[in-house]
Every structure is written in structure tokens, then in C-alpha cells.
């Protein structure tokens, strides 16, 4: 873990709500190394989703810079950002957001068709534990299974960073743990950098690095020398 994959420098994001300016992010700075498992921890409204969106190339900051492999993404044009998302980033959302009319496998293939060096679909499906559910439609699957498909979909593109927005937020404890385990396995097996945002402090224990946020600012950055396995997490 020596290469810096992501550099966030003095990042700020302001929203105008009527006459009031809301500071969603204020002077946020941190770095992420290749292959790290990062947890961004903070309560609702602390700016963690905004941070994830900017890092993922889905939103623009008001100020500051984000470098991905030393490439400045905050100055990229819309089309360049799209290709950045296509080739470098994998998203996992709280509510899975699968294509309802595609089966689990087809949802994953949809993502794989986007990039040239896509991962092996069967391998990805197996790794998330969905080998036997591949031909089911989202409506025929549980929340946990749907989230596995969402992870497989993100991983299939072979992204350098997996950005996960509250991936366990809509799941029960046990399913949540299983999902975290899948993410950890993916992190270890495929070597992807994984960035999980959550308000659940217990999840932080499995991270290599914890970035605590409060009111749009970084409250603390903790390097966890002894991350625990997801199975040992409790909440």
C-alpha cells in the first residue's frame, strides 16, 4: 500500500438554498492509497455523500481539487468525467438501484459491456455468492442478494476504486455483515480500493483508514493498524 490513488485537497462544496449558503463540504483534504479499505464515517448531513459524489465524478466542487492517479478530475469536462466513471470507478448504492428488467447476470453484463478490460463475469458472480441466482430478476431476490448483484455490477468493470454509499443501510444486521464480507473479499481478491461511507461506527473497525466527518469537515483521520474481519463486527 504505497501508491496514492486518490488525493483530495482543500475540497469545498456550497449549496445555495434561497438566501442561505449551505456549506456541505469545507476544506476537506485526505489521501487514499491503492488497495485500501476506507470508511468515511459521519452522521446524516455531515457531507459524506457529497464527498463521495465529487470523488466519483458525479458532482463538481465549489473549490479544491481531487486527483486520481495524479490526474486532476475536478477540472474535467462532462465527457471526461463520464469516461472516468466508466473506467475507474464502481458505485454501490444504498438501495441497489438495479435495472428491474434485467436479470442479475444481465445487470452485471451491462456494466461489463462498458469497458475493455472487464472482469470475468462468472468469477465475479461466484465471488459475490450469486452463482445460482444469476438468472433471477431483482424482484425475485432479497435485499441482500440485490446488493450482491450491485457489488458484482460495480466490480465487473474492474474499477480501481469501489465507492459504496451506505451499502448496508437498507439491510438487516446479518445481511449487512455478509455484504461487508463480500466487499472485503473483493478488496482482497481483486485488489480494488474500497471506500465505504456509513453512519454506522461499528463498520469502521474493519477499515484500514477511517475518515470521520462532521458538519462538512474532516473531524479525524484514523489509521487502523488492526482491522477486524466483518464477521466480528456488531451493532
Amino acid at each position: 500500500m504505497s501508491d496514492t490513488v486518490l488525493k483530495v485537497k482543500n475540497l469545498s462544496k456550497n449549496y445555495q438554498m434561497g438566501e442561505v449558503t449551505v456549506k456541505a463540504l469545507e476544506d476537506v483534504t485526505f489521501e487514499v492509497e491503492k488497495g485500501e479499505f476506507i470508511v468515511i464515517l459521519g452522521p446524516s448531513g455531515s457531507g459524506k455523500s457529497t464527498l463521495l459524489n465529487i470523488v466519483g465524478g458525479m458532482d463538481n466542487p465549489s473549490d479544491g481539487e481531487v486527483y486520481f492517479n495524479n490526474e486532476l478530475i475536478t477540472k474535467m469536462k462532462d465527457k471526461e468525467l463520464t469516461y472516468y466513471r466508466r473506467n475507474k470507478i464502481g458505485f454501490v448504492f444504498q438501495f441497489y438501484n438495479l435495472m428491474a428488467t434485467l436479470t442479475a447476470r444481465e445487470n452485471v453484463e451491462l456494466a461489463a459491456e462498458l469497458c475493455e478490460n472487464a472482469a470475468d463475469i462468472d468469477e465475479v458472480m461466484e465471488s459475490v455468492g450469486l452463482g445460482d441466482r444469476a438468472d433471477h430478476f431483482p424482484s425475485q431476490m432479497s435485499g441482500g442478494e440485490q446488493q450482491r448483484v450491485a457489488i458484482a455490477r460495480a466490480v465487473a468493470k474492474n474499477p480501481q476504486i469501489l465507492l459504496c454509499d451506505e451499502p448496508t443501510g437498507a439491510l438487516d444486521f446479518e445481511t449487512g455483515i455478509q455484504i461487508l464480507k463480500v466487499l472485503k473479499d473483493v478488496n482482497e481478491k481483486f485488489g480494488n480500493t474500497v471506500m465505504v461511507i456509513t453512519h454506522n461506527a461499528s463498520i469502521a473497525d474493519m477499515a484500514d483508514k477511517i475518515i470521520k466527518m462532521r458538519s462538512g469537515k474532516i473531524a479525524d483521520i484514523i489509521i487502523n493498524e488492526n482491522p477486524i474481519s466483518p464477521e466480528r463486527i456488531e451493532w
Binding site: 466519483g56 465527457k79 466513471r85 448504492f93
Partner: peptide, 8 residues
């Protein structure tokens, strides 16, 4: 989601 995945 499609946009987030990288579809133009």
C-alpha cells in the same frame, strides 16, 4: 445509475 456507471 447508468450515468454513474459511465454511460454517456
Amino acid at each position: 445509475v447508468l450515468k454513474a456507471m459511465g454511460f454517456t
